[in-house]
Write a protein that binds this DNA or RNA. Structure first.
Lengths: 368, 368
DNA sequence: GTGAAAGCGCTAACAC
DNA sequence: GTGTTAGCGCTTTCAC
């Protein structure tokens, strides 16, 4: 009974096991560590002691003494958003495959908190810190995050920007993006090709990089048709269903005229669709609607939602895989995942020639 | 230059900081630890060194040396399920509020993996291990998990069963449930009171405790009306939208007759609704539909889904709060959160008097 | 093969 | 106030 022999609570140490098996702590360590020659008899004795004591080695002590790699840290706005949840899934799956644990933290969109969390993750010696989703992208913020990226990098870790543009000052980061602008361009073009000209654009938080990308794509597509969207038809908001509901309600109340709605997320589209239904506006009969994200639910809306597919889970998987593979810290990776529009039933052909696609479609106009 | 002075990579230790500030490591520790008298001058020197070296103390070493508490571990089937995501949110929020990190692991419904993960969390010295969602509840599984619960408990940690029944053999666990049976009973009664008698029940994975609870409630409500559901109308499945889509499709193809569908999750209801639409069956005109969970999306279905509200986020918050508050390990807590039906537009009154108001009806009540 | 000793990076107890 | 000395629970030389 040298130190506290811990017979009481189940908090045994490797020494307790050693004593019980009548070997030295090192031997216990070797047995547990696997890969090391230990005589069968000793191994058996040790294992028995481990079982009897219900011993599990402290992973933190282990990590400190040996050089085990830390967990993967995952920082996002809100784990409740369907698309983010899929990224989380990708991250967790891939991390688990690599034998790593996943730490998850949410910021509620607070940039300050995000910075603090990333520092916290650095203290945890995370193998990689993955930031998901757009941000309010102020220069000051970038500068600070850039510095943290450097610290992380020089400590052998890695900052991963997921669905967010790279640093401009060359701070080290792995960035996995998806084509927000391209997707928005494509689906806007789809709307345009179906004859829609007055499109109500339900944007995201101003300043948010994701929102900006989608708006850029929208504007570019319109510009290609020589259209300059009326300011009244481009309204900011956030990515929630409530936001879609409210803003379309307001547009309707204001008597705005439009034949289509481009919601910058499927959640927003869902809210928009509901308020349209409530107002007795037929979709796509009177107004066409498109979303962005292609969450599983999109196909259960009525009509099924035409939207832009984003490979969220792959985004997550790629993030951890890329961050952890390349030890040669050489060129900073920058990967762009593709997006594509998936046509379902929420857009109809506008104009004299009617009928298109699986759903109906006849002439008709916008909404008051 | 005693040991590796680590001037190279950013991996500085407390000794590097101490050297640079010309103080002892303990002093650095005291400065960083806060609450301890240190002269202003020294503190300033130390902080400067910390800043210059971009030093962040290793949280693991810290935890080992002092006695900091471990993270909260959160183990669930699939983080992608909308309801689980809300539990996750509750857990993360509450953990953050308490200054704890959240570790998240998914099992994909694999009981074996779940057991392994819980052991892993024990190695991490998690402050609490939260298990979410129903399980295939075999006696062997229970026995094993019960043993783990004991180990956890005697190591000062805590197993939390969230939305899952307590151990029967008295293994220590905090259990936070919600009333699956009561909710199912209530919404079935609602259907019954609206005149529905032939109800297609879309169950969950057989053996899953959540699925069982909901089915019990369903049967109990029918029994109260003297009805014994025809076996053909009670079909198992899982909690995905695909499952709902497929099973209702099959029921339709088989020519089964029913006036209402009880989907045991909103996701299932969504799939069911879509296939009903596809088949030209009007909801609630021809067939009424109810779900379970009240995910945000439920109100964006068309018609808006009548369903059972479950306080998922509160479930998560309560789980960590309860597990971490009571140190007096005395009576094992068992909390039951209430559920209630929220009537929207997917159920109509059956019988001579037709009519389909958006909001009509009232809830049926009672608990098994 | 196995044990003793020397760390890992940190905090805490004990001096002065 | 601050440095010194012991640990925390583990792994890893380095001997034998």
């Amino acid at each position: 009974m040298s130190r506290k022999s811990a017979t009481a609570a189940g908090r045994h140490t490797i020494r307790d096991v050693a004593a019980r098996a009548k070997v030295s702590p090192s031997t216990v360590s070797r047995v547990l560590g696997g890969s090391y020659p230990v005589s069968t008899a000793t191994r058996a004795r040790v294992m028995r002691a481990v079982r009897e004591l219900d011993y599990v080695a402290d992973a933190r002590a282990r990590a400190i003494a040996g050089s085990e790699t830390g967990p993967v840290a995952f920082v996002l706005d809100d784990i409740t958003g369907p698309s983010f949840a899929h990224v989380a899934q990708g991250v967790e799956r891939e991390a688990a495959r690599l034998g790593l644990l996943s730490l998850v933290c949410t910021t509620d969109g607070d940039a300050e908190r995000e910075l603090a969390l990333v520092e916290l993750m650095r203290a945890q010696r995370a193998a990689a810190v993955i930031l998901v989703g757009g941000v309010a992208d102020s220069p000051a913020y970038r500068e600070r995050m850039g510095r943290i990226a450097k610290s992380l990098s020089s400590a052998g870790s890695r900052l991963v920007l997921c669905g967010r543009p790279p640093f401009t000052d060359g701070a080290p980061a792995t960035v996995i993006e998806y084509d927000n602008e391209g997707g928005a361009y494509a689906i806007t073009s789809h709307l345009l090709s179906m004859g829609h000209r007055r499109i109500l654009f339900l944007g995201g938080v101003p300043g948010n990089t994701t929102a900006q990308g989608r708006e850029r794509g929208f504007r570019a597509a319109l510009a290609a048709y020589g259209i300059d969207p009326p300011p009244a038809l481009v309204v900011p908001g956030d990515f929630t269903r409530e936001s879609g509901h409210r803003r379309v309600g307001e547009a309707l109340a204001a008597g705005l005229s439009f034949s289509a709605v481009f919601a910058t997320s499927d959640m927003v589209a869902a809210g928009a669709l509901t308020v349209l239904h409530e107002a007795g506006v037929s979709v796509p009969g009177d107004v066409s609607l498109v979303g962005y994200d292609d969450i599983p639910f999109a196909r259960d809306l009525h009509p099924p939602l035409t939207t832009v597919h984003v490979p969220y889970e792959e985004l997550g998987r790629t993030a951890v895989r890329t961050a952890l593979s390349r030890r040669p810290d050489s060129a900073d990776e920058r990967i762009m995942l593709g997006t594509h529009v998936v046509v379902r039933g929420s857009v109809r052909q506008l104009g004299p020639r009617g009928g298109v696609g699986e759903k109906k479609g006849r002439g008709g106009g916008g909404t008051a």
